[in-house]
Write a protein that binds this DNA or RNA. Structure first.
Lengths: 217, 217
DNA sequence: AATTTCAACGGACCTCGGTCCGCTTAGCTT
DNA sequence: AAGCTAAGCGGACCGAGGTCCGTTGAAATT
């Protein structure tokens, strides 16, 4: 066990990849916070991460976060918009890890593998990644209305479209990509594993089968 | 325009199909209400349907329903469990229409058509049906945690599994069925149509393509 | 250093979903 | 008809998300 893994490494001087991601994800222009606001933001994230670890992300309340961070509730809402904004911010770190893996990581996930192999690897990676952090992902995705508009989702979708195209797939690429993404829905995965007793391996192999059937044609 | 279409035909002496559905859907044993409770239940549904039509199901509040029906808030919760229970009850009528269509209706949806044709028809029918009532479906499905356990969902899943099997599909039938169901998610459909500007025809034809790729193998 | 301005702050306040519990009454039993 | 009992009822109450608005102070300008 590593000791005290820094829960929220303050994002200063982001490395080039993260800059790229910011650009791709947010359109690139968040207006830069005042010093005190930035300080509060990181404090809030630290506290929120701690509380989420203690009581489960599902039981996190905005007021608890605020008071544990010794700021007013308004401050939390101003910074993160709403509960789901906070969840998304908590997820951001994990999400970037995954994104780095499939955007610039080693094969078979990263760019140095043939597209079909990347597709296969992508599914397995996402399933395992999200399942590993399922509490947080479940809490964050409880927002149903933003599911398809979140930057993370869009990035995955674009990635899948790209891979499908490069694999020479015929047909309505975007719909095929949406179908594939639907299979990776954390709610579905969670349901199948925890309620229906399926193994992650079975899901992963189902993904492989799906890719086989959808690619090319 | 028909005048005063009975908004909530009190469910007395249900026809055989509905009995069958009750059995399949609820396990068959809801304990039969006291007279006053049954009266209140239908009043509540009438009122809720009216309010939902007026202000949109998304803006329906439990208190508004209660007071418009002149009962206490507790009564509404006792009867329907929670907001989503009420939504589900509101949906029940539409849902049964759809179910009747694919369980016992005429071909190509009903049992007198070959399985692959039924599969094709099923997707188009669900997409159009849910999109037609999308406000209600969106509100009801906002519940994320019950999505995969609702009786309606299970019924659809079972139906798809059956059709896939009869069509001679090889592979992990249940996962394939889940994949197909994912494509029909009202949130996805709504997003693709309203935000991405796709036509229902495009989605329907995407469904047909999907069926083609997943069946058999 | 003084002035200005506007982002940031905090916490009172509102709404709404959901619970609780003491009272009422439908409908069975005798 | 009278009595019994559990289902039903209602509305006060609670907790949590989200808003509002008067105040504070960071930092840009002079």
């Amino acid at each position: 066990m590593k000791e005290s893994p820094p829960p929220f490494p303050a994002p200063q001087e982001p490395d080039p990849l993260n800059k790229l991601l910011d650009l791709a994800l947010t359109g690139g222009e968040q207006p830069r916070l005042r010093a005190d606001a930035a300080r509060n933001r990181t404090r809030l994230l630290e506290v929120a991460a701690r509380l989420a670890a203690e009581c489960g992300p599902g039981n996190l309340t905005m007021e608890a976060v605020a008071s544990a961070a010794e700021v007013g509730k308004g401050t939390v809402f101003r910074r993160f918009g709403d509960r789901f904004g906070l969840m998304a911010a908590l997820l951001d770190h994990h999400e970037r890890e995954l994104q780095a893996a499939f955007l610039t990581g080693p094969p078979p996930l990263g760019p140095d593998a043939p597209p079909v192999e990347r597709l296969r690897a992508f599914g397995a990676a996402v399933i395992r990644h999200e399942y590993a952090h399922r509490d947080l992902y479940l809490a964050a995705r409880a927002d149903v209305s933003r599911r398809h508009t979140s930057p993370a989702h869009q990035l995955r979708l674009g990635h899948l479209c790209m891979l499908l195209r490069r694999a020479g797939t015929k047909g309505d690429i975007e719909l095929l990509a949406q179908t594939l993404l639907g299979y990776l829905d954390i709610n579905l995965v969670d349901h199948l594993v925890d309620r229906r007793g399926m193994s992650l391996d079975r899901l992963a192999s189902g993904w492989g089968d799906l890719v086989e059937r959808l690619v090319v044609s």
